Every structure is written in structure tokens, then in C-alpha cells.
Simulated scan of single mutants.
Amino acid sequence: MSLLGVQQIGYGSVSNKAKKAMRQTIRDWRMNWRSNRTLEEIATKVNPVIRGWINYYGRFYKSEMHEVLKHMNRALVRWVQCKYKKLKRHQRCATHWLGKIAKRETKMFTHWQWGITPPTG
């Protein structure tokens, strides 16, 4: 509450509508259908968009972006499961596999540089 008794709204925070639109954009990329691509190719495609979201929304209220960026990691895990037969039915193993890559190649994805990486196990 401010001195005037009006609740202040944080400027630059991410609205639920904006988060929903970002998650829909991630779904529209349909990464799990692109199992013929490499992780580097996916990174070059999505990094400019994610960097733009982080620069625009993450400037003032970074923690609001975590939900969307974790959704991006889940989409990458689904891609891993489609790409590699051994991990097809093992979501936790696919998450750990991707986490190991994130630990080794922290600059591959923009949100990994921000610290939003899959767990390594």
C-alpha cells in the first residue's frame, strides 16, 4: 500500500495472460516433433525469443519468469525423450541427462545462463 491507500502494482511484472502466451509459444514450437534436429539447432532457434522475454519481463521481477523458463526445460525434456529411444519412457533419466548437459554447456540456452537448469540427479 502506498501513502495514498492505493495498492501499487509492480511495473514490468509478468501478467498471467503474458505467461500463458509465452507457454503457448513454447508449445507452438513443437520441439518434440523435431527429433531430427540437434540440441544446438534448437538453441539457436529459441534463444533470441527467450532472451527477448528475459530482457523485457525479467528486468524488474525475475522470479515471475521462472515458471515459464521451467516450462521450457520440460519441453526440452520431452524433446530428449522423443530423440533418444532409451529415454523414451524415463522422464527422470531424460531430465538428469539434460541437466548434465546444462551443467557442462551453461551457455547453450539463455535461461540456463540465468540458472534455470534441469536437475542433474
Rank of each mutant, 00 (worst) to 15 (best):
H96T: 12
G58P: 13
G52D: 03
V68R: 00
Q91C: 08
T106D: 10
E67H: 11
H66R: 13
M1F: 01
K103C: 08
I50V: 15
V80M: 14
V46C: 05
N36D: 14
A43Q: 02
S35V: 10
L69H: 03
W33Q: 13
V80D: 02
I42R: 02
P119V: 00
T110D: 11
A18C: 09
W97M: 04
M72P: 05
Q8F: 06
M108G: 03
R37V: 00
N47K: 00
W114N: 04
N47E: 04
V14F: 02
K103I: 05
F60T: 06
K107Q: 10
K107M: 08
W112G: 07
D28Q: 11
G99K: 13
L76H: 06
G5R: 06
L87I: 06
R104G: 01
N73M: 07
F109C: 13
V49E: 02
T106C: 03
Y57A: 00
A75C: 15
N36E: 14
R37S: 07
L69T: 09
R51E: 02
S13R: 13
T110E: 15
N55R: 12
W112D: 05
K103W: 09
P48K: 14
L4N: 07
L3R: 04
K86D: 11
I9N: 10
S63V: 05
Q7A: 11
I50S: 06
F109G: 09
E105R: 13
L87K: 12
W53D: 03
T44C: 00
S63K: 15
P119F: 04
R30L: 09
G121Q: 09
N16G: 12
A94D: 04
Y61C: 13
T38W: 00
G12Q: 07
V68S: 00
R30D: 05
E41S: 07
W29S: 05
P48C: 14
